[in-house]
């Protein structure tokens, strides 16, 4: 099978700090990781390759340093890494991102053939919109299978696939046609440790880098800021409530504090106390 996996390099959110005075995000020195949700797609791709043979290609759009995340994916066992990088992509929203990525996928497909599956993450941990996967599917006419918890059956020759999909109140069992865009649910698998030889290969691998022109993008008004219908107008810290929290003094021992707190709660919400008393029938 031919499988593409879209991965995004994101700042490790656990290590992000906000400057206490200026409220700006302090990115300096924050390590980057592969978006954790993308690893479930990557592992699923590697498993399909284990069963059916074929190749797994990882793709990303980002600054030149995003090639690090591709190399990391090669270390897990992916065959090839493709980086789309160009200053024209700066400031892309999800519409512009899905445009650039679908051009990248088409360019790669020209060389390798159309993939049967494009995996995307369920969402990222930074932008967190979950919009890029559906955008790619729509642009390339792929069957859209989001929130997949398991691939039950796949027949690459017939081009059919059966999956379990997490819906709001239960699990849907769906059949569909390849090629498909799939987002895997977290917990559906666990990324493997790359083999020694994969890790060695990854360290030396040259990641293919393309710019906008190389993937055939001629209309730059579809890219980056210009190609993004959404505009971030304001970034701000949430206002504190105009009325400050009433602080219950903690002195005088814990029990006194507890009683004082309960008094304050019921003073503000007398109805709540009545509800509680009538509900506490068990005592």
């Amino acid at each position: 099978m031919r499988i593409f996996v879209c991965i995004k390099q994101v700042p490790d959110s656990a290590q992000i700090r906000v400057h206490p005075v200026t409220n700006t995000i302090m990115r300096q020195g924050v390590p980057t990781i592969i978006n954790p949700y993308d690893l479930f797609g990557l592992e699923e791709a590697l498993r399909l390759r284990d069963s059916f043979g074929g190749t797994v290609t990882v793709l990303t759009m980002g600054p030149p340093m995003a090639s690090e995340s591709l190399r990391k994916a090669l270390g897990y066992g992916a065959d090839r890494g493709l980086l789309l990088t160009d200053r024209f992509f700066a400031g892309s929203d999800t519409l512009a991102t899905s445009y650039a990525l679908s051009r990248l996928i088409e360019k790669a497909a020209e060389e390798q053939g159309m993939p049967q599956i494009v995996f995307c993450g369920k969402q990222t941990i930074d932008g967190d919109t979950a919009q890029v996967g559906p955008g790619i599917a729509q642009r390339l006419g792929l069957s859209q299978l989001t929130y997949v918890s398991a691939i039950d059956e796949i027949d690459p020759d017939k081009g059919t696939i059966t999956v379990r999909r997490r819906a709001d109140h239960g699990v849907q069992v769906l059949t569909s046609r390849l090629p498909a865009m799939i987002t895997m649910l977290e917990g559906s698998n666990q990324i493997r440790r790359g083999t020694q030889s994969d890790v060695l290969r990854a360290a030396q691998a040259k990641v293919t880098q393309w710019n906008a022109a190389a993937v055939g993008i001629t209309d730059l008004s579809l890219c980056g800021l210009r190609g993004s219908p959404t505009v971030v107008k304001r970034v701000f810290a949430p206002a504190a409530r105009s009325e400050k929290a009433e602080m219950i003094p903690a002195g005088g021992g814990g029990s006194a504090t507890a009683t004082a707190l309960i008094d304050a709660i019921f003073k503000r919400q007398p109805a709540l106390e009545e509800d509680l008393i009538s509900a506490a029938g068990g005592y």
Binding site: T94, G135, T146
Partner: peptide, 21 residues
């Protein structure tokens, strides 16, 4: 789950902006 699955496709087809969550 449903809304996120649908909104991204519709916005892409219409080429308009979509603000998430």
């Amino acid at each position: 789950v449903l809304g996120r699955d649908l909104a991204g496709s519709v916005a892409t087809t219409l080429k308009t902006g979509l603000t998430a969550d």
